[in-house]
């Protein structure tokens, strides 16, 4: 039997909002480690990997590893029925074909439950090796989202270039071109406002902007975003969820013809 009680239920809501437009159907895996998902978008260009560690839950019971196939857009619809401060409990019976979502208001005066049918989803699981990246940029997530949105008004691709000068985001389109440079900035009042660049070697990679823009839907989950870049490798765009887990997006680069 599975019973997971998440006091900060809004986390699950935000996670679904972050991935529902990228992935249609996916398996949520539950094990002693936590509640996780790995899935690719339909064109296999992007991959999302998320984890809510078991410690993130007030009560975490998962008797055996279980994989639950769900339509993410329907799951997002169900989660939208929860209040912003609701406690969310997920329940499933062993061998059952449904997942129950229970929403409790903070003062316990309203309790709702929604049952969703599980689906059989044939999904491919990819092994992602631990890699030393040539450059790692940590910056405010809202700033990154703003840059991606601004550039998407100009072009379809984003070149991310890290040098010792800083990180440069560039695009080019029919109306012209744009470059936005962010320099390392650690002299800020709040650590979440810092931009930190760790660079082993300069690196430039080009990506489809619409995917990067879609990843920024995870912005409400974290004040900071981390971009990990290496030549000829997918970029990793990571939003850490406090001490509780993460959501990582992997995006394959575009290369010159």
């Amino acid at each position: 039997m599975l019973e997971l009680r998440l006091v900060q239920g809004s986390l699950l809501k935000k996670l679904l909002e972050a991935i529902k437009d990228l992935v249609t159907d996916a398996n949520f895996d539950c094990s002693a480690t936590g509640f996780s998902l790995q899935a690719m978008d339909s064109s296999h260009v992007a991959l999302v990997s998320l984890l809510l560690r078991s410690e993130a839950f007030e009560h975490y019971r998962c008797d055996r590893n279980i994989s639950m196939g769900l339509n993410l857009s329907n799951m997002a619809k169900v989660l939208r029925c929860s209040g912003p401060d609701d406690i969310i409990t997920l329940k499933a019976d062993d061998g059952g074909d449904s997942l129950t979502f229970m929403f409790e208001s903070p003062n316990q005066d309203k309790i709702a439950d929604f049952e969703m049918k599980l689906m059989d989803i044939d999904s491919e699981h990819l092994g992602i090796p631990d890699t030393e990246y040539q450059a790692i940029v940590r910056m405010p997530s809202a700033e990154f989202a703003r840059i991606c949105k601004d550039l998407s008004g100009i072009g379809d691709t984003i070149a991310i270039s890290v040098t010792k000068e800083g990180v440069k985001f560039s695009t080019r389109g029919d109306i012209g071109s744009a470059n936005i440079v962010c320099r390392q900035n650690t002299s800020v009042d709040k650590p979440e406002d810092a931009t930190i660049i760790e660079m082993e070697e300069p690196v430039t990679l080009t990506f489809a902007l619409r995917y990067i823009n879609s990843f920024t839907k995870a912005t409400p989950l974290s004040n900071q975003v981390t971009l990990s870049l290496s030549s000829d490798l997918p970029v990793v765009v990571e939003y850490k969820i406090a001490e509780m887990g993460y959501i990582r997006f992997y995006l394959a680069p575009k290369i010159d013809e």
Binding site: M40, S43, H44, V45, A46, L47, E124, H125, L126, G127, I128, P129, D156, T157, R172, T206, A208, L233, P234, Y250, L251, A252, P253, K254, I255, D256, E257
Partner: peptide, 14 residues
């Protein structure tokens, strides 16, 4: 502009 690579070209199925 450019050729879009696929994520499966980088990571192996487990």
């Amino acid at each position: 502009r450019g050729v879009q690579l696929s994520i499966t070209e980088f990571y192996k199925s487990t």
